[in-house]
Structure formats: structure tokens, C-alpha cells
């Protein structure tokens, strides 16, 4: 099969959305899909291990796996525990994957859309993170 456009040098960066609320996580992911499309790996998770409001390290690890890209994965989080649990999930990944996952210091919905937009253009992981973080006060 011959492609009309040259292939990108690497796969697009994946995006993971982590919220305390499963509904917020799913809703943010729905917005990314509608506004950015399907050219990026995207996964979301929310809720504690019993299904209440909170976040879960195993669920975050599964979401990173689902959105995995050899170019890396950018995580958007809502509140404190989501960040701490995401940091923990990253540390529990295999050595060769750990350095390819970053947490963006950005508002979760807007940051996810900005990061996904940047990722859909083939940007590198650092550029995706920077695009999301432009939304945060310095």
C-alpha cells in the first residue's frame, strides 16, 4: 500500500485524562474526541477503587497502557490526589516507559483539548506538555 502523504516520523503522543469523577473524565474525553478527532491515543479514568469520587493508581496505570504511544503519554489531572496518584502510577511503570509519561500542570478540560490538539499535529511530548501548560499562570 502506498501512502499519499509521508508518514510522520513517530506516532502521535497519547493523552490520559484523570479526574476524581468518572463523569468528568468521560466528559472531558468526549470533548477531546469531538474537537480533535481520533488521530491520537486517548484514555480516561475517574473514581476511587470502590467507584466513589477519587482516583485509583491501578486505573491510571491501565489508562496509560490504553493510550500508550512510543512517543509518550501526557496526563491531565484535576485535583491534588489525582496528581499524586498519577505520579505514583508513573513510578510503578516499567523502567523503559517511565520517562515517556508526563503530568501537565493545566486545567483538566482545557488542558486536555490543548494537549490533544498539539499531539494531533505530531508534536513531541515536551511540546504537548508545554501547549497544555500555556493555560496555567506562570
Amino acid at each position: 500500500m502506498t501512502k499519499k502523504t509521508p508518514a510522520k516520523p513517530t506516532a502521535n503522543v497519547g493523552i490520559v485524562i484523570v479526574s476524581h469523577s468518572p463523569d468528568v473524565a468521560r466528559g472531558a474525553a468526549d470533548m477531546v474526541r469531538q474537537m480533535v478527532g481520533t488521530s491520537i491515543p486517548l484514555a480516561h479514568c475517574g473514581g476511587d477503587p470502590d467507584g466513589g469520587l477519587g482516583t485509583s493508581v491501578p486505573a491510571i496505570m491501565a489508562a496509560i497502557e490504553a493510550a500508550w504511544s512510543p512517543s509518550g503519554v501526557a496526563i491531565l489531572v484535576d485535583l491534588g490526589g489525582a496528581e499524586t496518584n498519577s505520579e505514583m502510577a508513573i513510578e510503578m511503570l516499567d523502567d523503559d516507559r517511565r520517562d515517556l509519561v508526563v503530568i501537565c500542570n493545566a486545567p483538566v478540560v482545557e488542558g486536555a483539548i490543548m494537549a490533544a490538539t498539539e499531539a494531533s499535529g505530531g508534536a513531541r511530548l515536551a511540546e504537548v506538555k508545554a501547549a497544555a501548560e500555556e493555560l496555567s499562570p506562570a
Binding site: 476511587d48 477503587p49 477519587g54 482516583t55 485509583s56 493508581v57 496518584n85 505514583m88 510503578m92
Partner: peptide, 15 residues
């Protein structure tokens, strides 16, 4: 604790 607590205290007490 890390895998089951579900809040920031999981990684904190886990660590």
C-alpha cells in the same frame, strides 16, 4: 495502600 486507598493518602502512606 497505593493500589487501594484512592486518594492522595494512598501514595503518601504507601511511600
Amino acid at each position: 495502600l497505593i493500589m487501594t486507598v484512592g486518594g492522595a493518602s494512598g501514595p503518601l502512606y504507601g511511600s
